[in-house]
Design a protein around this nucleic acid. Structure first.
Lengths: 210, 210
DNA sequence: GGAAGAAATGAATAATGGTTCACTAGTTAC
DNA sequence: GTAACTAGTGAACCATTATTCATTTCTTCC
């Protein structure tokens, strides 16, 4: 057996894979999945195009992995916020606010995760992510109804309204432009924008003026 | 001058143009803009592919025209509902409900108009349509604030939330599937779905439990 | 019928961009 | 060093579709 994979090779491969992933993430941050060409990714990560295919079955698989990585972070953050202190209304508000602030900070990525059209395998990941999201929000809404802090409602529908209202306001076609959003995010001038969206959402959920 | 365009020819051309438009609309209703190939449109309208280009500069132009036709109808409907009787809250509710019911009745078209990725020229039309929409809703919200039926708020932001909440609920990735939606629409079982979305929206606007 | 022109045709072209694969370079173990 | 094998390469390939344009067919008017 004249050749056997060794630690050194494993590391080298892992590093190449990491570089490919990082470069893809950067391409996506710059212009969404649409902007991420296999050839540019290869060039950007210092490998040949063929090498991409030694690490990933196809472009779709690569994208699906990127998507999974990015969305897992978001789902975890929401889960964390929803697991914090206080009643369901407070926790929901924290989660939504965080979602909004994060989306505003990386609007292109947010758009890629939420709304950009993608290939079927990536869409499948998006669906999983959406369901995870929806389940988290729904169960928080149900807790709110059980504890009496929220009026009776169909949790799954409210959850869709919440996600839609925030997404449209922040990454929709009439939203503040990306340049604008970034300056907003760095200025911390985003507060009033996020506040008014969260206000709408919480009123929608609770039916109480704020 | 041995040839001069005559009424007969004008009619024939107009008819071909109409057939092209109708066939494109049908393709879009079946699977969005993405599903509308120039060659299928040509085949479906009984002309050669080249003929499409005697009627439209490019595919983008054809699509932009289709988009314009479809969205004008929607904007007019909303304008009509917003010009009806009653205070701003009542009129807004009518307009939103109608928007939701219409979207649910033709979910694929609604998706194409609202969310499907499209070429720049079509996107331009979408932006115009969105602005027209936003202006209508905003001015109604402002009337509501002036007459005291709505609390103070940033009309443009509320309007984005409204559109987002409805769009996500009805044509978002977790919305009832198209097949489902169509059976819903024909069953008139869509009432509770629309009701709960409108309830969320009106609470978000007014801050009053309903 | 025929001259002048317009309309229609559809096969060929072009652009885009993912994927392959014959080949080269590198790695391991003896 | 060399046999056995893997990793890496990138130009060629392929699929998909919009668009063009030389050619054919149809209209009009005399």
């Amino acid at each position: 057996m004249p050749y056997r994979e060794t630690e050194k090779m494993r590391n080298r491969k892992a590093q190449a894979r990491r570089r490919i992933i990082e470069c893809t993430q950067q391409c996506i941050a710059e212009g969404g999945f649409r902007n991420a060409r296999v050839t540019s990714i290869a060039e950007g990560s210092g490998v040949a195009t063929g090498t991409i295919y030694r690490h990933f079955e196809s472009k779709e698989d690569l994208f699906a992995e990127i998507f999974r990585i990015a969305t897992q972070i978001e789902v975890d953050k929401v889960a964390e916020a929803l697991a914090s202190e206080g009643n369901a209304v407070l926790r929901l508000e924290r989660a939504l606010r965080q979602f909004a602030v994060r989306a505003l900070r990386s609007p292109t990525v947010a758009w890629a995760l939420i709304a950009e059209p993608v290939d079927p395998k990536v869409e499948e990941e998006r669906l999983k992510f959406r369901r995870a999201y929806a389940e988290l929000l729904e169960s928080a809404i149900e807790q709110g109804m059980a504890e009496g802090s929220l009026p009776q409602q169909q949790a799954s529908r409210s959850s869709a309204c919440l996600v839609g209202a925030i997404a449209e306001s922040l990454v929709g076609p009439l939203s503040p432009s990306v340049a604008n959003a970034q300056s907003l995010a760095s200025n911390n001038d985003s507060q009033p924008l996020v506040d008014s969206i969260i206000c709408f959402c919480m009123q929608g959920l609770t039916g109480n003026r704020r």
